[in-house]
Amino acid sequence: MAIKNKKLITIIIWLAVILALFAGVFLTGNQGEKHETVKEMMRDAVLHDLNHISFLGIKEVNPAFISALVITAVLLISAAFIRLFFIPRLKYIPSKFQLLLEQMVGLFDNFAKTNSPHQNGFLGAYIFGAGMYIFFGTMFELIGFQAFTTEGYAISLPAPLSDINGAIAMGCLSYLIILIAGIVTNGFKGLGSTLKDFSMPLSMSFRLFGAMLSGVLVTELVYYYLSLSFVLPVIVGVLFTLLHAIIQTYVLVMLTASTYGEATKPKKKQLSRHSPVSGGFQN
């Protein structure tokens, strides 16, 4: 009986909070009036020509770079905490959190070992960093971290890779690493085989940018209109972003790992078609 009453009270409080929030939304009216039209907003999401944020007073940068810095800081601080307080207490029979850590590291390590069996030490570390950056960078959208533009407007920070500069940096760095690994392993032949895929940095960068941008545009569109801001963001915001984060992480990591593996595969000496085999038919 007491449990039923408790449940009923909880439901009533929950409904009251929802009603109060609804009332608040409608009563506050147009205080949060948009400073840009949906067209301008969409254009800015693609071209980044309107909203800029001052980076330590040195340079005006795109909001996505600030997102990248925030993510880097958060991830590094979390990693430092884990390194200091958790890793020294790792056990042979793992706890739930240890299992999660091991799964994360093991996943990227296995990716590297499977796709590049000959050389995978550096690749594992690189795709681990890239994977974490893309996944948490995409999930960062959900938080709606606020920042002020140079013009004084409040904006929520986007995913770092929805900025063309961030995507180009990621795509080109991945290609550069594959190129260097090819040269280190196979010398001139490695360079040749990697340069063969000269379109790869472009495709990697723009695929990543396009995929992330599409997510940003849909989310921005949904949040732009008040009428769409109820219930729908649960699906668009949470489910789409989560799927998006997983898929983009998988795609870039997979592409990088497989191309790296291809570039570092030891090249066998091929027999020339014209030179006859010694002891063959030769008169």
């Binding site: 810095l69 880097t72 590094l76 884990i82 390194r83 850590l101 594992g124 570390a125 681990f128 960093g129």
Partner: peptide, 14 residues
């Protein structure tokens, strides 16, 4: 930024 993150994550976690 990404290089710092990758190197840091490698040293601290990976």
């Amino acid at each position: 930024n990404f290089s710092v993150l990758t190197f840091g994550l490698y040293l601290l976690l990976y």
